[in-house]
Design a protein around this nucleic acid. Structure first.
Length: 496
RNA sequence: GGGUUGGUAGCUCAGCGGUAGAGCAGUUGGCUUUUAACCAAUUGGUCCAGGGUUCGAAUCCCUGCCAACCCA
């Protein structure tokens, strides 16, 4: 960010020189008719094209030159010679910089080495870059700059741009799939007086005119259920949730969530929805149901097979597999001791179901690489779901785990207002949360039986795109702000 | 919150007590089918910040800042 850098100074001087020549380096008088991808894919020898992009690399050879430029679709090459452009225009072109935007017109041809190229007859400088781009061969590696100045990352690293363009297509295909199933998309409040629908620490903000605090939402659930009450029978929202908790490879304070609710459905209909949707997305965006994850050297480290039908297994069976057949016949004290012996992290305040769940989270979930519906979770874990008739200690839910992460939980939604109040009051006592009375009132007006599901879009993208960090699927991940050097510390704060 | 690793030119990285280096990019010259173009010359630094040890610190020690990874 050095403002006195010599490279920047040189570019400013070039900018001035262009203006002296009567060239405005920021004027828009160019409409391309051909993208970089079309230079390759829509090739026809001698076809006249107009193309534009950012200069990525140039090879100057005396009286001619080759230049690679990029647009959203990728990279293309143009060829310029002094004979075609004239002395002055060619000399000016030799002095454009990497990073500048240029528009060119010319005819398509193929070089000796077989690259489809534009032989230009004219060009116009569209925007002068005053700072040098990252290095062309190694790209940009520094993670801090990649995240803080993502535009440089996108500019320098084609694979990064591909990931984000695919993320966009994934979300687009999710919408298409849900709409094809009759779901309608809505928007519900991000600022809520009582943050509900999950157990998580919220961010607090303040509304001046109303004179009260609001919370940034931690889930979409309670408002979408109000819409079921209102008669919108198939409803979904894709939007940001905010949780004031730790940052990690898998957690960003703001993250994107999909929630969908289907009146007259249940957790089983949600299974079909999740499986159908993920398969549709994988097939349309990636063209395959086999997802290969690679390490930095390009070796395949795991392959995820999304071919239906996915494995379905009960929570208790997975626990027994890991912790012993008699696990649920033990006393709570024996379970606690057993969990500690296995190496799970148990806190003194953990209740019995939390002790068991610690085993699930530490030893089972991380190993569920292939898509798995884990069903019949203990009712204490899920306060918004219906009790399973065949095992009243559990609820009618699943957690869909893929790639060692929970990607999508889904329930047969609790619609009994009296039972719902009891569970929420019990939870509110433990977690010191406020009870959303208006939500209960809505349930008292009658909510149809429904299946509901949530899906962590960032984690889904990690799984589908083979990214090991959530920061590599979020364009601008949360970073600690850099100290602004212009903001001087007050003297009395100097000790802090 | 704890641990590990890292921060050196615009970018990618060496150097790890004894005069701050390379490649790319930049500048100048040469070159009309190159593609990490090539050839020759050349510019460029608060070695993250602040203390300490030392005759001497980018290098060793301490503190702080930022980041990545692991753990909680």
């Amino acid at each position: 960010m050095d403002e006195t850098n010599k490279l920047i100074e040189q570019r400013r001087q070039k900018l001035e020189a262009l203006r002296q020549q009567g060239i405005d380096p920021y004027r828009n008088n160019f409409s391309p008719d051909t993208s970089c991808a079309q230079v390759r894919d829509n090739y026809e020898e001698g076809r006249e094209v107009r193309a534009a992009g950012r200069i990525a690399a140039q090879r100057i050879m005396g009286k001619s030159m080759f230049v690679h430029f990029t647009d959203q679709t990728g990279k293309a090459q143009f060829y310029a010679s002094r004979n075609d452009l004239g002395d002055e225009a060619f000399a000016t072109l030799k002095h454009v910089d990497l990073g500048d935007f240029i528009g060119v017109t010319g005819k398509l041809f193929t070089t000796k080495t077989g690259e489809k190229t534009i032989h230009i007859t004219d060009y116009v400088l569209l925007s002068k870059a005053l700072r040098p781009p990252p290095e062309k061969f190694h790209g940009l590696v520094d993670t801090e700059i990649r995240y803080r100045q993502r535009y440089l990352d996108l500019m320098a690293n084609q694979d990064v741009k591909d990931v984000f363009l695919k993320r966009t297509r994934i979300i687009s295909e999710i919408r298409k799939y849900l709409e094809s199933q009759g779901y309608v998309e809505v928007e519900t409040p991000m600022m809520q007086a009582i943050p509900g629908g999950a157990a998580a620490q919220p961010f607090v903000t303040h509304h001046n005119a109303l004179g009260c605090d609001f919370y940034m939402r931690i889930a979409l659930e309670l408002y979408l259920k109000r819409l079921l009450v209102g008669g919108i029978d198939r409803v979904f929202e894709i939007g940001r949730n905010f949780r004031n908790e730790g940052l990690s490879r898998r957690h960003n304070p703001e993250f994107t969530m999909l929630e969908a609710y289907q009146a007259y459905g249940d957790y089983k209909s949600m299974m079909a929805l999740v499986q159908g949707m993920v398969c549709h997305v994988a097939e349309t965006v990636l063209g395959t149901l086999f997802i290969e994850h690679r390490d930095d050297d390009g070796n395949v480290i795991r392959t995820i097979d999304l071919t239906p039908d996915w494995r379905t297994v009960r929570y208790k069976d997975l626990i027994r597999e890991k912790a012993g057949e008699n696990w649920f016949d033990l006393t709570p004290e024996e379970r606690r001791a057993g969990a500690v012996k296995l190496g799970a992290e148990i806190h003194d305040t953990d209740e019995d179901f939390e002790v068991t769940n610690a085993i699930f989270e530490k030893f089972i979930e991380p190993n569920l690489i292939q898509p798995t519906f884990v069903t019949h979770l203990p009712k204490e874990l899920v306060p918004l779901a219906k009790i399973s008739p065949d095992d009243p200690s559990t609820v009618e839910v699943f957690e869909c785990c893929i790639n060692g992460q929970e990607i999508a939980p889904a329930y047969s939604e609790q619609n009994d207002p009296i039972q719902q109040r009891e569970t929420l009051e019990h939870q509110a006592g433990g977690e010191q949360q406020k009870l959303d009375e208006d939500f209960i009132v809505a349930l008292e007006h009658g909510m149809p039986p429904a299946g509901g599901m949530g899906m962590g879009i960032d984690r889904l993208c990690m799984m589908l795109l083979g990214q090991e960090s959530i920061r590599d699927v979020i364009l601008f991940p949360q970073m600690k702000p850099l100290q602004n050097p212009q903001k001087k510390e007050a003297p009395e704060d100097a000790g802090k």
